[in-house]
Design a protein around this nucleic acid. Sequence first.
DNA 1: CTGTGTGCAAACTCTTTGCATAAGT
DNA 2: ACTTATGCAAAGAGTTTGCACACAG
Lengths: 122, 122
Amino acid sequence: MKPTRQRLRLGELLFGRGGRHVTPDMLYREVNEGGEAISRGTVYNTLHELTRAGLVRQIGVRGGMTFFDTNPSTHHHYFIDGEDRLLDLDGPGLDIAAMPELPAGYEVARVDAIVHLRRKRS
Amino acid sequence: MKPTRQRLRLGELLFGRGGRHVTPDMLYREVNEGGEAISRGTVYNTLHELTRAGLVRQIGVRGGMTFFDTNPSTHHHYFIDGEDRLLDLDGPGLDIAAMPELPAGYEVARVDAIVHLRRKRS
DNA sequence: CTGTGTGCAAACTCTTTGCATAAGT
DNA sequence: ACTTATGCAAAGAGTTTGCACACAG
């Protein structure tokens, strides 16, 4: 994987300042505000390559939105319905006990949990 | 919500024979095999209306696939990576303990957990 | 006749792919 | 040169929306 101009720029945005949760579109807009022109296709391809390399994690949210999380370690998320924001839910607190009867011949690859939040009605 | 021909047909496919997990596209193909022609748009609109009515539940899977589950009660899912199949994970076994520090002003709307499975390497 | 609700075609957005170009050996 | 990898334009899916039509009151 070669360190091209496009990848350096995207890497900078993704990893330059702590953990982030971006959609491909957010990243595309952001990169093109800085004057550098990078096509949507390249943004997608790069995100998928980073995913394959294990540097980034893809998260599916109800409704078909796709986020990429720059923190690939095991943790879960909050999602704020209506604001389209994804937050890390770290620390303990969300415990997932062992699974019951897995279908035969299969093993667990990963557990993704998303806690949907809504603004409290007051 | 009027019981039109289109809705009756879709309802029959969705609820006629136990719980199902369908993508809009699956449902569209299925309905059009039976000779009845229903447009994609109508399939989407109907699924969203059923979701709003609480009869069906939308589930987001990593990678942007969207499933609709005809069982709207609280339960979680297995997803088989590479086969694009979504299965109910019912019974006890997956326990989610109380959340830590929710962001202030928000409350939990729902918890969606997806256990990703892969075929065991033998 | 009027108002409300429906289904679909067309528009739009999101994502993937094929290919011309570039970089490395 | 030849091979492998890259970025992007264009194609392809997937999803939403605006509007003509239908039905009920």
